[in-house]
Amino acid sequence: MARTTHRAGFALVALAYAATTAGGSVPTPLYVLYQRRDHFGTTMISVVFAVYVIGVIAGLVLAGAHAERVRRRPLLGAALAVQLLACAVFLVWPDLAGILTGRVLSGLSIGLLSGPATAYLIELRRRALPDGDPRQAEVVATAANLGGIAAGPLLSGVLAEWAPAPLRLPFLAIGALLALATVLLATVPETTDNRATAPARRPLDTAPGQRHLFVASCLGGLLAFAMFGLFSALSPSFLAGTLGYHSHALAGLVAFVGLGAAASGQVGLRKLPPRQAMTAVAAAMPVGLALLVAGVWAGSLGLFVIGGALTGGAAGLLFRASLTTVVQLSPPERRAGTLATLFVVSYSGLAVPVIGLGLATQLAGTRGALAGFATLALAGLAAVAAVRLRPDRPSDPVEI
């Protein structure tokens, strides 16, 4: 198949990245339907998300060990194929065991994709525009990741509300997009040599210097993804169980608002200087969390949505800061391992609100559990800000 230019390949890899992460988030508004059909409770939703995170971590470890000895395009193709397999499992094995299996496969796909796709975008951008802004690839990588996560619930929510076969059609639609992305990926030029004879590396690595910034970046990633988990996993249950809204389209839209704000913030605020960016996160996230909590306590959909948009935008900016700092701190030969570490810690954050709030709700109720979660999130934000807002030193990264 004829090869595209590096510039076109950059766009196609971003599309493949977004399509795969969208596939991973498609089930978000559908869990209410699965619960109604199979009569399982919120504890099982926590199990479903836990096995998804296990799949993600397994994929990240596998990709981190072999990313430097396997070329970029085959690794991304494998991730797309596994996500297609997950869609097929949801279609042909619709009971609880199939849901759990599909989520493990979906998580494995995301884990295989995240680090290598980010590295691939960076390399394609440098080949296409050697003198261009190096931050562009990192912004696009984060936007593709979060944009896909945001688009998945919106797609499945709309189809579940107004189209037939709500538990089948969303997977057929995203499967078609994944198949198209797989075909187009075959035209993207490779950016690495064939290193099949190279030994496997350690799957996870740390930055060789400035460990305080690396640790703060990983904690920032975990905090950001905990916010994403709050929107993607719990928005439908909050809307239905606490606020009394049962529309699947609305559940997908609310998740899209929070996650979409995270993605769009990457583009709109990409030129914000480092300290101003972190200051914006430190100012916006507490306000957003306060509005989320107030919306649940007062039963106000408007406050909940506005709070979700503010919190999501701040979380997206925080994750981009974390990603860019890790890239800058890592030499090229260790970048795959350090990115894998960042993504392992970050994706672990997806399970924090699902499992933590699920257990806390049984003790303190939904409103009390969400207030406690917001308090812990603000404590984590304070720890990250204490490191990121230190006076810049000459050796510190100067861009986020």
Rank of each mutant, 00 (worst) to 15 (best):
Q136T: 15
R71W: 09
L146V: 12
T118Q: 09
T279I: 15
V26L: 15
G312P: 01
V13K: 06
T20Q: 03
G349W: 06
L62Y: 08
L146N: 02
Q276D: 13
G220Q: 07
A321S: 13
A261N: 07
L259A: 14
A181Y: 07
A263V: 09
D193Y: 06
L178Y: 05
V47Y: 03
G258M: 11
L80V: 04
R72D: 11
H6C: 10
L219S: 02
I122K: 02
I355R: 00
T279C: 13
L323N: 04
R393V: 01
Y347V: 02
A336D: 12
A179W: 00
P331D: 13
V82D: 09
L172T: 03
P273Y: 10
A165E: 14
F214W: 05
V387T: 13
I400D: 14
A240F: 01
H39I: 11
L84I: 12
P331V: 11
S109L: 04
D392F: 08
P332V: 04
A196P: 02
A290N: 04
P203R: 14
L222V: 05
L269P: 00
V53G: 04
P116E: 06
V139P: 04
I122A: 13
L342M: 08
G312M: 11
R3D: 11
E68K: 00
I122F: 08
L239Y: 07
Q210E: 13
A65H: 05
L91V: 15
L291Q: 06
A8K: 00
R320C: 07
A280P: 09
S237P: 00
R334C: 07
G23K: 03
P286A: 08
